Amino acid sequence: MIKALNDRIVVIGAEGSSNVTAVLTKDGVVIVDTSLFPEKARKVKELVNDFFKRPIGVVVNTHYHPDHTFGNVAFEEFKIVSSELTKSFMESFDEEYLSKLPSIDKIVTPNFLFDEEYEDRNLLIKRLGGHTPDSSIIFFKQERLVVTGDLLFNGFHPEIVADSDLDAWIDALKFIETLKPIWIVPGHGEIANTESLRAMERYLMKMKRLIEGAVNLQDVMSDENFSKRKFPELFGWSLENLLHQRGS
């Protein structure tokens, strides 16, 4: 998927893969997330240069997961922005973690860090947590565009990981809605809207109720907000992670 929302915004993704967003601002092109594969990131870099014919100014990582950061190697010469927590998580990747992923010659970590928030005249980057403790959103004020990272999965089951916090995740989705965005780019899936945020919120709330025993599995799987999402194997994996959290 290569989708130009207008002459200043391009979103690049594929079926289920993480989205890469490029936005032309007065200070140059801002790229959000860099994908899992360095070769794909290099092609994205070429595409962005050809489309905008303006220099890349800043690269932003929404969170530490490799499918959003391993492509950093293609942008090593640029300012790469993330929360301090994102960089810390990336520096803690060990051999066991990396052995389960496509091989990579070099991990390039962010070189411009913030704690909870970074803001300039057109850009707000805010760490909200939820999907992961370091999950951040990027709000382009003039364009009224929010890039959510994996706080939003549109059309796919979300990946609820070992360090996910459902309460913080739900709060993050509510905060995104207060920004009144025109466009929302999810971590995975097609361009979204506020109803997509609400569907994600309902999904997480129902997962909470399932773990608490307030609803049963049949109730969940008969809900179209679950049954119509792609990658159902992620539901089972996420449920295992939540049960492990509850038992620990």
Results as ranks from 00 to 15, higher is better:
191 I>E: 01
99 S>F: 04
49 N>F: 13
122 N>T: 08
202 R>T: 09
20 V>D: 01
21 T>C: 14
112 F>T: 03
58 V>R: 04
231 F>G: 00
222 S>F: 15
6 N>T: 11
197 L>F: 03
148 T>D: 01
136 S>K: 03
104 I>W: 05
30 V>L: 12
77 E>C: 10
65 H>C: 04
211 I>F: 04
32 V>H: 05
193 N>I: 15
121 R>I: 09
122 N>W: 03
30 V>E: 00
189 G>W: 03
101 L>T: 12
140 F>D: 05
112 F>M: 07
174 K>G: 04
89 F>H: 12
137 I>M: 04
191 I>S: 03
92 S>W: 07
131 H>Y: 08
196 S>L: 12
15 E>Q: 14
175 F>C: 01
186 P>Y: 09
13 G>H: 13
72 N>T: 08
200 M>N: 05
34 T>Y: 05
138 I>D: 02
31 I>Y: 09
172 A>H: 04
160 I>C: 06
192 A>C: 07
201 E>P: 07
68 H>V: 02
248 S>P: 10
54 R>Q: 13
189 G>I: 00
23 V>I: 11
8 R>V: 08
226 F>Y: 14
221 M>P: 06
34 T>G: 06
110 P>G: 10
117 E>A: 05
23 V>K: 02
107 I>P: 00
235 F>Q: 08
83 S>P: 00
130 G>N: 10
5 L>K: 01
138 I>L: 13
98 L>Y: 07
204 L>G: 05
70 F>K: 02
31 I>P: 09
223 D>E: 11
82 S>I: 06
213 G>K: 11
68 H>L: 11
96 E>T: 15
148 T>Y: 00
43 K>H: 09
209 R>F: 03
177 E>I: 01
239 L>E: 10
75 F>M: 06
57 G>V: 02
75 F>R: 06
138 I>R: 01
113 L>Q: 13
65 H>S: 11
106 K>L: 01
154 N>Y: 10
172 A>Y: 03
7 D>G: 10
79 K>Y: 08
37 F>H: 09
25 T>P: 04
86 T>H: 00
90 M>P: 07
70 F>W: 04
150 D>A: 04
140 F>P: 02
90 M>V: 11
39 E>G: 05
176 I>T: 08
140 F>E: 00
200 M>C: 05
200 M>F: 10
226 F>E: 04
141 K>Y: 07
73 V>W: 05
13 G>T: 14
58 V>Q: 08
37 F>C: 10
169 W>K: 05
125 I>A: 03
201 E>N: 07
246 R>F: 07
186 P>I: 11
161 V>C: 02
180 K>F: 13
27 D>V: 06
217 L>I: 13
79 K>M: 09
219 D>M: 10
71 G>C: 06
122 N>F: 07
103 S>W: 10
79 K>S: 08
241 N>Q: 14
236 G>N: 13
174 K>V: 09
134 D>A: 02
35 S>M: 11
39 E>H: 15
47 L>K: 11
9 I>D: 11
82 S>T: 04
96 E>V: 15
245 Q>H: 14
127 R>T: 08
41 A>D: 09
41 A>T: 12
143 E>C: 06
248 S>Y: 15
39 E>I: 14
75 F>A: 06
144 R>W: 09
122 N>M: 03
83 S>L: 03
101 L>F: 09
128 L>T: 02
193 N>L: 12
120 D>P: 08
129 G>D: 01
248 S>V: 15
142 Q>G: 11
147 V>E: 02
16 G>H: 14
16 G>A: 13
